[in-house]
Amino acid sequence: MRSAAFDYVRAGSVAEALVALADDRETRVLAGGQSLVPMMALRLARPEVLVDITRCPELQSCSLEESVLRIGAAVPDAVLERDPDIRAAHPLLVRTLSLIAHEEIRARGTLCGSLAHADPAAELPALLLATDGEVEVDGPGGPRRVPAAEFFDGPFTAALDDGEMVVAARLPVPGPAVGWAVDEIARRPGDFALAGAVCTVELDSSGRCSGVGVALFGVSSTPVRSRGAEEVLMGQQVDEAVLDAAAAASLDGVDVLGDEVHAPAAYRRDAGRALVRRTLAAAVRSAGGGTA
């Protein structure tokens, strides 16, 4: 199991990386490599040029700007998890990161790499989607921002044009009044999710739901917003019955994956709804709601 041959470019800046990515041959960005390298070992991916962006100084930092956490493309997950400022600013992100694989993978894997890889069973794309984040992209056409809702085109397909790369992710930080929860069902801890959900819930002073975001992962060919659950909750006084109804509606309009190795479709539906029920309840609790 050895990768096919490739040339390696260690980019010293985003500009250098973009030049390297403009090569006529097949190019790929290498950040943490924790998803790409296994595919290369199996020769399912066979780039001819690998552009290592981890040494680009402008991709190595994070910043908090007006309630948006901007995370550079070269920042490993484990660094985010340990950063006291990020732990304080965005505990939902930190909790989501902890669900990814194992510490040794997170030590090199990057948030932006996970977004670009667009694995439908991955946690971070769903987080971006649930919180209406954006992806900063740079390329031959110049820098642009892509909203999460437009970024995940299909399984393992992100909305990146030839020669483009992700330079940062922009994660809106849930306000102090926002409750949140993230959870997943996996055969073993650290495995890809059979079903997963990221929820944010905001309650007004009367306990009515004034804002909600629910994104599912591992249930469809891309991460998806659960509009069904969101619509049931929005504007409602949240109680057990509402949560039940939200869970029941959570897969409405969602194109659930067919039977596959680890779970039949029916399981994804049943367990997915149960998971939405559980995470919503937890999010409501953390928003100060009294139920469940």
Binding site: Q34, V37, L50, D52, P76, A78, I105, A107, R108
Partner: peptide
Amino acid sequence: VDGAAVRSCLMFAVQ
């Protein structure tokens, strides 16, 4: 590597 436990099968030597 630089203080972090990592998979040496998922890292090219040049990295």
